[in-house]
Nucleic acid binder design. Structure first.
Lengths: 109, 109
DNA sequence: TGAGTATATGTCATTTTTGACATATTGCCC
DNA sequence: GGGCAATATGTCAAAAATGACATATACTCA
């Protein structure tokens, strides 16, 4: 087998874990969290604006009231996928989505 | 215990599964898939634009080359979270993110 | 006060996603 | 042709997220 060569190739640059990398990771993680919170807020607004209860929204998206509550509360176990699904199920407009997605970001323009 | 009453409450409206609900679900799912593909394209552009290999990007975001390849290929097992993390790790600008997020949507304006 | 409705919180078995690895493929230079 | 770098594909154990459920809290109305 040629795994020896492959090992060398793959070992070329792995698990460096420098301080810079660490800081970058946490920074990106912070940005992602901000984005999620922003979308969670947008969801709450979109849902109440349409006079939907958490139970009703849960039915629409095939989930449960408790999970909808967690989405809106910014629970760390909730994925972006679920938040966006909830927004779509709540009938959020493109403008509402974009606005939430665009705001709060501190990235380079 | 009062579970009988609770059961009645929760059973009020569950598992209806009407055709309308089903169609809505698939439509929203389709929108989500479009969004993911759009972001996957944006990632590929952002990465190559910065002359990063998939291995380098994987290192930056603490993942592996194969997963980066799957992200860009639109693999169905890849979450929005992972795609956005990749975009952030690739140093995508706010504009790049917004553009990908905004396009391809067929929602109500 | 109590009943009703909406939302929040905590837990957990099942499902889904992840990084890692092996390997295949492509493109490029000699 | 071979060598080499980049990317694609397939698999899987471990980790994470999900829906469901129980229950708690908050608020309104009578």
């Amino acid at each position: 087998m040629n795994s020896a060569k492959l090992k060398k190739l793959q070992a070329a640059g792995w698990k460096v874990g420098s301080a810079k990398d660490f800081l970058n990771l946490t920074n990106e993680e912070a940005l992602l969290v901000e984005l999620k919170l922003s979308l969670a807020d947008a969801l709450k607004r979109a849902r109440t604006k349409r006079h939907l209860s958490q139970v009703e929204l849960a039915q629409r998206m095939g989930s449960s009231q408790s999970r909808v509550a967690k989405i809106e509360a910014g629970d760390p176990t909730v994925t972006l996928d679920l938040i966006v699904r909830a927004l779509l199920a709540a009938g959020a407009t493109r403008g509402e989505l974009q606005k939430a997605f665009a705001s709060k970001e501190k990235m380079a323009a």
